[in-house]
Design a protein around this nucleic acid. Structure first.
Length: 527
DNA sequence: TCTAGCACGTA
DNA sequence: GTACGTGCTAG
């Protein structure tokens, strides 16, 4: 199940925003049509409250500088990104999606038990989105349960065809949650797309191909059920003590086991005369240095207690201009335990000239993998009605160029150099420069996407068959599910096509391009 | 720095 | 029993 029983505890971080902020428009700009009417003001998209699930766990990782493994095949995040939302309009349909943007333009290295800047970042990977499989669904549906993005996968494979989010190793990233209105009269990709963005700073992480910080490794092992096999079982495990703040040499049972296995294996091989010369099998145990977080300004230890920074921005886009609606959140509104979430909202008015015209044709000819799944049969009332075009908002996923760095984690205040290669120079507003946390951050623009621009993956289905329980996505199998062109989609818990009324986006998410593997590379540039 | 293969665990 | 998610390890 992609949604779980709501279990947001009191430690969850919450975000509340001010209402009635859609005023104070600059001269010459009228109110965007996407602004909801006043009768709905209490349930405007900017009023949606988002609570990060397991915030305390996130904070634990954050305090040690969260690392996320990225692999060629794709790796899930842990902790998983799960949120609880409230104050949605129960009848309005929303699309929930996540993107992961560079937190800064640095490359990092783990040196002396701390993260340090190691140079300039590699060019950003093609921006991809992970659209929650239930999207679009009504507010009632979203509010009913915990919303889990646990199936989101990260990869370092630039040619990834599975729709995983592509990241560079040893770079810092910031996940962002976007909530879009998906009403039939306000479909994503139409001229009026209202959305809001929520950023939980404790979810920032550095991508790695193998863990650098033992603290992170231990936190993962201790908290991730799938890593249970690496836990010690005895009470008073040394690692428990270590995690409680005491510093002991870290020799886990698994380490011993692994080495014994290696030793046995090696012994067998040596006996068989297969190998010679291996002498380091039992060379060393790992020790946890237990060094305190660095205070080095160039280190990337995520501040444990940063300045309260709840920001709330409302923007309105019209004629390629962004308008801040003047709804900055007041810190006083925030409870002492409130999150350090940044919240942005926008009522987009994406003129047709800004629509990704090139994408329209492209989407129909290529089959970019979409990290997106079907509306599950048990999705409840929120599930879209099959065959109802009105309930099939066209989700123009390519509009979302998610490569803007999030300036929050500017370590040294170096102005961010936009990854312009991924944007259309003609119409893409310049990404925010560091540090400007209160002006432009988190704001999307409806830039036209051209060939060579990052492909965002999103699709949804309003005519989905019941999901096949137990079916799983697996790279080697994915191509099999959607081979048949006559089947627009197949029941699958994590994927579906997205039949849109506008025909903008007909995709087979979570699956490889059907016979067009090379097309993946055609959507992003190397420069 | 990255990868494939492994054992062990969850679902 | 199967598929998949983990961290560990050697290379």
């Amino acid at each position: 199940m992609l949604q779980e029983k709501a279990s947001a505890g009191t430690d969850d971080c919450t975000s509340r925003v001010q209402s009635g902020a859609q005023t104070d428009l600059p001269p010459g700009l009228s109110t965007a049509p996407a602004i909801p009417s006043s009768s709905e003001s209490e349930q405007n998209i900017e009023n949606i409250k988002v609570v990060l699930h397991e915030r305390e766990l996130w904070k634990k990782f954050h305090e040690a500088s969260t690392e996320m493994i990225i692999t060629k095949a794709g790796r899930r995040m842990f902790p998983s990104y799960k949120v609880k939302v409230s104050k949605m309009n129960s009848k309005t349909k929303y699309i929930l999606l996540i993107d992961i943007v560079p937190a800064d333009d640095h490359r990092y290295k783990f040196c002396d038990n701390k993260w340090m800047v190691a140079g300039k970042a590699e060019p950003a990977m093609p921006g991809r989105l992970y659209v929650h499989p239930d999207s679009p669904a009504t507010g009632a549906h979203w509010m009913r349960q915990l919303i889990s993005f646990q199936k989101l996968k990260l990869t370092n494979n630039h040619l990834d065809t599975f729709g995983h989010i592509i990241l560079n190793s040893m770079h810092k990233y910031q996940p962002r949650l976007h909530i879009l209105k998906a009403d039939e009269n306000n479909a994503f990709g139409s001229q009026n797309t209202a959305y809001c963005t929520h950023v939980f700073h404790e979810t920032a992480f550095i991508s790695v191909t193998s863990y650098q910080n033992h603290k992170i490794t231990q936190l993962k092992i201790e908290n991730n059920p799938f890593a249970k096999g690496f836990r010690g079982s005895e009470e008073g495990d040394l690692r428990v003590s270590r995690l409680q703040g005491k510093e002991y040499p870290l020799i886990t049972k698994n380490m011993v086991r692994q080495r014994l296995l290696s030793s046995h294996s090696l012994a067998g091989k040596l006996t068989a005369g297969v190998l010679t010369g291996h002498s380091q099998v039992l060379s060393s145990y790992q020790y946890d240095s237990g060094l305190p977080p660095s205070e080095d300004p160039t280190s990337t230890h995520f501040p444990q207690s940063r300045e309260p920074s709840l920001l709330y921005h409302c923007f309105k886009h019209r004629d390629n201009s962004r308008v801040e609606l003047g709804c900055k959140r007041s810190y006083l509104e925030t409870s002492p335990t409130a999150s350090e979430e940044h919240f942005f909202c926008s009522a987009h008015s994406c003129e047709s000239s800004l629509l990704p015209h090139s994408f329209c044709a492209e989407a129909l000819t290529s089959r970019e993998a979409c990290m997106y799944g079907s509306v599950e049969a048990e999705s409840g009332p929120g599930a879209a009605e099959p065959g109802d075009p009105a309930n099939s908002p066209s989700l123009n996923c390519n509009m979302w160029a998610s490569v803007q760095p999030y300036p929050r984690y500017s370590v040294e205040g170096i102005p961010y150099q936009p990854f312009s290669a991924h944007f259309s120079a003609a119409s893409q507003p310049a990404p925010p420069m560091v540090p400007r946390p209160q002006a432009d951050v988190g704001v999307y623009s409806c830039a036209p996407l051209q060939r060579g621009l990052p492909v965002i993956h999103a699709a949804s289905s309003t005519s989905c068959s019941p999901a096949a329980p137990g079916s799983r996505e697996r790279p080697g199998q994915q191509a099999l599910h959607h081979k048949n062109p006559s089947s627009p989609f197949r029941p699958h818990r994590d994927s579906s096509a997205y039949p849109t009324s506008s025909g903008l986006c007909v995709r087979e998410p979570s699956y490889p391009y059907q016979g067009e593997l090379s097309s993946a590379a055609a959507h992003w540039t190397d420069s």
